[in-house]
């Protein structure tokens, strides 16, 4: 069966460094797929190739049967792929509610719409949606705070909320719990589980924290030095000798 995301023979070189070597990856629709691997394995580079930030040297990337290569980031996003970055990318100078409004507009109006007369908060339906999202993220009461003034964990949650407001079909998460306290990490796990239960969504997650990986993932791909090492279920990955080898010397 073909997955919603099909990555075939993707190669990417940075000068002499082979960041991705013949990566193949198939993510099944409505599954949670984790990509793990030591630092510098090429995990973020792989995501960059999926969302239009980088162009692979060779290979193909199909989302729902359509190639994403050669498209701009906003086109790929409008196809239904949202990405949470390793370091939170939010609109720091804007308030939290304004941050939330932007993906709501993007979802409804597409990549450009000249809408220069009405007041942004007169769009009752979208405001309600934005407020609802914030509430479900436990961020009610922070509506009018500048996003930059929030804690790192809150910024992450805001970014996830913004991505979810777009109702993507595929959500890519790059280390969503990095730098989070244990409690926040557990909240994030619960949140992602809840999202998964509530709607049809496919999640691909990069994560170093094995607790997160094993709580969420249905399948795991292990990358090492740009090569896919193994792909299997969490149970089988746990004791896999190759995986242990790749992580040798790592704290995990």
């Amino acid at each position: 069966m073909m997955g919603i995301l099909e990555v075939k023979n993707v190669n990417k070189r940075f000068g002499g460094l082979q960041a991705l070597g013949d990566v193949n990856l198939s993510v099944a629709e409505n599954s949670v797929h984790a990509i793990i691997g030591p630092n510098g394995a090429g995990k973020s580079t792989l995501l960059n190739c999926l969302v239009g930030k980088l162009m692979p040297d060779t290979g193909s990337v199909l989302f729902d049967g359509q190639s994403v290569l050669g498209r701009t980031p906003h086109e790929i996003n409008q196809m239904g792929i949202s990405r949470v970055f390793q370091t939170p990318e939010i609109f720091g100078e804007l308030t939290v509610l304004e941050n939330m409004m932007i993906p709501c507009f993007a979802k409804r109006d597409g990549s450009f719409r000249m809408h220069a007369i009405g007041h942004m908060f007169d769009e009752a339906e979208l405001v309600e949606k934005a407020e609802h999202m914030l509430e479900s993220m436990n961020m009610a009461g922070k509506h009018h705070m500048h996003a930059a003034a929030m804690s790192r964990g809150d910024k992450r949650r805001l970014e996830i909320a913004m991505c979810l407001a777009q109702e993507p079909r595929l959500l890519l998460l790059d280390e969503p719990t990095a730098g989070m306290a244990r409690a926040d990490t557990n909240n994030t796990i619960d949140l992602l589980k809840q999202i998964k239960d509530e709607r049809d969504i496919t999640i691909a997650i990069i994560e170093h924290d094995m607790h997160v990986v094993f709580s969420l993932a249905e399948r795991i791909t292990v990358l090492a030095q740009g090569m896919p090492l193994v792909e299997d279920t969490p149970e089988n990955i746990k004791g896999h000798p190759k995986v242990k080898e790749a992580y040798l010397g790592e704290a995990h």
């Binding site: 969302v51 701009t72 980031p73 906003h74 996003n77 409008q78 949202s82 990405r83 970055f85 990318e89 939010i90 609109f91 720091g92 100078e93 804007l94 304004e98 409004m101 932007i102 993906p103 507009f105 993007a106 979802k107 109006d109 597409g110 990549s111 450009f112 719409r113 000249m114 809408h115 220069a116 007369i117 009405g118 007041h119 942004m120 769009e123 913004m162 777009q166």
Partner: peptide, 25 residues
Amino acid sequence: FRSPFGLMLRAIKSNQTRMSYTGLN
């Protein structure tokens, strides 16, 4: 300034990366 269009313009100043990855051109 107060319109959705103005919000997008402020978004451009604040973070163009987030803007493109939110599906906005």
